[in-house]
């Protein structure tokens, strides 16, 4: 029977699951090693995060390192280093993990959003004198600024389509 095991390094048979320090291949044992590492370090990880005035991508990496560096030598390293071509989903879920480039990128507004607010003021003034078309543009702008639209902008559909066409594996870590 073929096992569906996440193996971005291509050496599961010789180095174990994701090159863990103990070369363990049994996924049930891996789950317990991860659980113990998490329980051991979660207090320190949370304490560290609470000291931070603001959180950045480097804090995500450092938290992962703190939690799992006793199990995996690569803990805390950016996923694009070791698995740049693999789309990863949580086991049992269809949602893809965010690509590291999307996590690291600062939040930005869509480039298609018109300049505000000076343009609107001018548009409103013109619209009252001419036609209702600018008012429709104003509604369109509001839609683009909605939270759901902003989220979509942070993770463009084209990116999702690009990685979903590649090999998809399940991850338990």
């Amino acid at each position: 029977m073929e096992l569906n095991v996440l193996d971005p390094f291509g050496d599961y048979e010789t180095a174990g699951y994701l090159r863990n320090f103990e070369c363990v291949k049994d996924l049930d044992v891996i789950a317990k090693l991860e659980a113990a590492a998490f329980k051991d370090n979660v207090v320190d990880a949370v304490r560290r995060l609470r000291r931070r005035p603001s959180l950045a991508y480097s804090d995500v990496l450092e938290t992962h390192r703190l939690l799992f560096n006793s199990v995996y030598p690569w803990a805390g390293e950016d996923r694009s280093i070791h698995a740049p071509d693999i789309a990863i989903t949580r086991a049992g879920y269809k949602t893809l993990f965010t690509h590291p480039k999307d996590i690291a990128a600062p939040p930005t507004m869509p480039s298609t959003v018109p300049q505000m607010p000076q343009t609107c003021v001018n548009t409103q003034e013109k619209s009252s004198a001419t036609s209702p078309t600018p008012i429709l543009s104003s509604k369109e702008t509001a839609v683009r600024f909605s939270p759901s639209s902003a989220n979509n902008a942070a993770a463009p559909a084209s990116t999702c389509a690009g990685i979903s066409s590649k090999k998809t594996n399940s991850c338990t870590c």
Partner: peptide, 9 residues
């Protein structure tokens, strides 16, 4: 931590 992991495994 590594010793804990080694013994647990």
């Amino acid at each position: 931590q590594r010793q804990r992991t080694m013994l647990q495994a």
